[in-house]
Design a protein around this nucleic acid. Structure first.
Lengths: 337, 337
DNA sequence: CTGTTAGCGCATTCAG
DNA sequence: CTGAATGCGCTAACAG
C-alpha cells in the first residue's frame, strides 16, 4: 500500500506537506504542490480514509435508510438523495429496513460503527424513536423523511397528508360517493395515522358517518389486499362501499388488480383513488387517480438539510418542511355517465 | 466517545481483553466475558470501525456498482446483492455510474479510499477495464455481473445472450417474420455486442439476409427511441421491418410506446420482442414478449462469489457463471389470424 | 486465559 | 510556507 510517506520520500518533502496537498491547503507553494501531485499520480496514491476518519471523526459518508427498496417511491427518494449527496462531495450508503424495526436497529449499529456523518431516514415506525435516540447519543445528526415520530423534535421533510387526503376524499364525495372505504398501512406509522385521521375528519365535515367496517389496516409493502377487498365485497348491499381510498402505491395497485380479478368495474361499480405515483411501463394511459408525492425532492431536500446540519450552516431551530402532493384525476375515480 | 479503554477500566480488565470479547475470541473465561459484556451494554459501546480497519485492512463493506438505479433490472440485482451481503454480515454500498465511465472512475477512487472489501460491478462499458485494473492494483477483489470485459480474466455472473437472443429471433422467424429490426444499446457494452452478434448469426443460419438499415444503436437508459423507430417506419414498404427486437427493457417499453403513438398495431403491423422483465403495475395482463433475466440472482450469486474470493474459500481458477433467461411469449409477438 | 508493547496511516498541534 | 512530534481507537504479536 502506498502511503503519504512513500510520496513524501519520493518528492523530497515531509509527510505533512503531502497531507496539505491532499487536503488542498492554500499555504503551499505552487512549485512543491505540483511536484507532490506528480508523485501522487505516478504512484497511484489514494488516501486511506480509515486513518483519516480516526482523527477527523468525519467520513464523508451519509446513510439513507428506506423501508422498501422495491417501492418506486423510495427508488425516487434514493435518486434525489444520491444526486444531492454526490454533488456535495458525499457518498451514500443505502440501507433497507424492510419496514422492520429490528432490521433497522441492526443497520443502525453498523452505521454508527462505520461512521456515518449523518443519516437520512424514513423510520420503520414509531418504535424507531429508540434508534434516533441512539444516533443522538453518538452525535450523529439525522433528518426524517416521509414519516415523523411523535414527540421527536428534529429536521424533517414530510408530505402534507392532511390536505392531500382531504382533497382526495372530497373529490370522491363530489363524484357522489358516500360510502368510502380506506385500506391503510399499519397505524404505528405516522403517515398511515395522518391519512386515517384526515379521512375521518373529512367525512365528518361533510356529514358522512364513519363506519368501522369500511376501515381496513393492511401493509405498505407489496403484499396482497385480497382479504381486505373480500371483506368489503362481502358486506351487505347497503353497507358496501362505492369507493376505495388506498394509502400507498402498492395498496392502490393491488386493489386495482384484485377488483379486476373479481370482475368489478372501475369506476362504475367501485371508484379507486390512491396515494403515490406508479411508474407507467406500458403504452396505455394510466387509469388510477393518484396523489403523487415529490419523492425525488424528499431525498434531495432531505440530504440538503442533513448536510447543513452536519456542516453547521443550519439554524439552531429544527426545520419541518412540508411538501404538497400533486393530484392526478384519472378514470378510476371519474364517473362516466 | 466510549472506547475500549473506558470499558476496560470499568470492568477491571485490560483493553486487550475487551477487544477479545468484542471479536468473540474463544479464549476468554465465561466470567470475564459476561462482566465485560455487561459494561459494554451499560455504556452503549459500539466499536470504531475506522480504527479497526486501519489494522485489519478489512471493512466488512462490499460495494455494488450498477449503471442505472432507475432500471428495475438493477433494482432486483440490488435486492439480491443486499440480501446475500446482509446474510453474510457485510454492508452494501450502492453506487450508480449512470452508464458513465467517468462517474464510475470517480466512485472507484472513493471505494478504494473508504476501503471496500470487494466490489460487485456491472461495468459501464469496455473502458471500465482501466477501473478494474485499479482495483486489482489495490488488492480489492471484484466480480463482474451482467457485462463482461474483453481479455479480462475474473469471476463473473453473466446471462446466456447467445441462446436467449437466438430463441427470441427464431420465435419471430417461426411467426413468419423475415425483416427483423434490432434496436440495441451501445456496442461498446458487451451485452449489446453479444446480442448483436447472436442476432446476425441467427438470421444467417436461417438464410435471412442481414440489412444495415434494420440495425439501430440506441441507449440502455430510459431515453427515447423515437428517431430509430421513425427511421424504420420511413423505409420503403418492401424494406420496412415487420418485427423489432429490443435489447433491454427500456428500449422495449419505449418502442411499444412510440409504436402506439404512431398508431401502429402490435403485433399485426409490427411484432415486438424484448430483453428483460418489466414490473407489471397494472391490473392488465402484460402484452410484451420478453426474455426475463434472473436479475435477483445476478446480485445474490455475485455477492456469494465475491465473498468466497475475499475470504479465500474460492478456488484459484476464476469462475464464469452463465444464467439462462426465461422467455415469456405474449401478445406482442404472437400472430393473431 | 490475560496483559504489554507497538504501530496501522494520517492530521492536529506547535515550531521554525 | 514547511516540518517534527504526538496520538486517534484498535488489534497483532508476543509474553506471562
Amino acid at each position: 500500500m502506498v502511503t503519504i510517506y512513500d510520496i513524501a520520500k519520493k518528492a523530497n518533502v515531509s509527510a505533512m506537506t503531502v497531507s496539505r496537498v491532499i487536503n488542498k491547503s492554500e499555504k503551499i507553494s505552487e512549485e512543491t504542490r505540483k511536484k507532490v501531485e506528480a508523485v501522487i499520480k505516478e504512484l497511484n496514491y489514494i488516501p486511506n480514509n480509515s486513518a483519516r476518519n480516526l482523527i477527523t471523526k468525519k467520513t464523508k459518508i451519509l446513510s439513507l435508510m428506506i423501508t422498501d427498496i422495491a417501492n418506486p417511491f423510495f427508488t425516487s427518494v434514493a435518486r434525489g438523495a444520491e444526486d444531492k449527496a454526490m454533488q456535495m462531495g458525499y457518498q451514500l450508503l443505502l440501507c433497507n429496513s424492510d419496514e422492520d424495526f429490528e432490521k433497522e436497529s441492526k443497520y443502525m449499529d453498523m452505521l454508527i460503527s462505520t461512521g456515518s456523518d449523518g443519516v437520512l431516514i424514513a423510520p420503520a415506525n414509531d418504535h424507531s424513536k429508540k434508534n434516533m435516540k441512539k444516533l443522538t447519543k453518538h452525535g450523529i445528526p439525522f433528518v426524517l423523511i416521509d414519516r415523523s415520530i411523535p414527540n421527536l423534535e428534529c429536521d424533517q421533510v414530510l408530505s402534507d397528508n392532511e390536505t392531500t387526503t382531504r382533497r382526495l376524499i372530497e373529490h370522491l364525495i363530489k363524484q357522489g360517493h358516500q360510502k368510502i372505504a380506506i385500506i391503510n398501512g399499519p397505524l404505528v406509522v405516522s403517515t398511515a395515522r395522518e391519512r386515517h385521521q384526515a379521512y375521518l375528519d373529512t367525512l365528518k365535515i361533510h356529514g358522512i358517518s364513519v363506519e368501522d367496517h369500511l376501515m381496513k389496516e393492511s401493509h405498505f409493502r407489496d403484499s396482497d389486499v385480497t382479504n381486505s377487498i373480500q371483506e368489503l365485497l362481502n358486506l351487505p348491499e347497503d353497507e358496501r362501499p362505492t369507493a376505495i381510498f388506498a394509502t400507498n402505491n402498492f395498496i392502490g395497485m393491488n386493489t386495482m388488480k384484485t377488483l379486476h380479478k373479481h370482475n368489478i368495474k372501475v369506476p362504475e361499480e367501485m371508484a379507486v383513488v390512491s396515494y403515490d405515483g406508479i411508474p407507467n411501463y406500458t403504452e396505455e394511459e394510466p387509469v388510477l387517480t393518484v396523489a403523487e408525492q415529490p419523492a425525488y425532492n424528499f431525498g434531495y431536500i432531505g440530504i440538503q438539510l442533513l448536510i447543513e446540519r452536519i456542516e453547521g450552516t443550519a439554524p439552531e431551530k429544527v426545520r419541518k418542511i412540508v411538501l404538497p402532493a400533486e393530484i392526478h384525476l384519472r378514470a378510476s375515480s371519474l364517473y362516466q355517465p
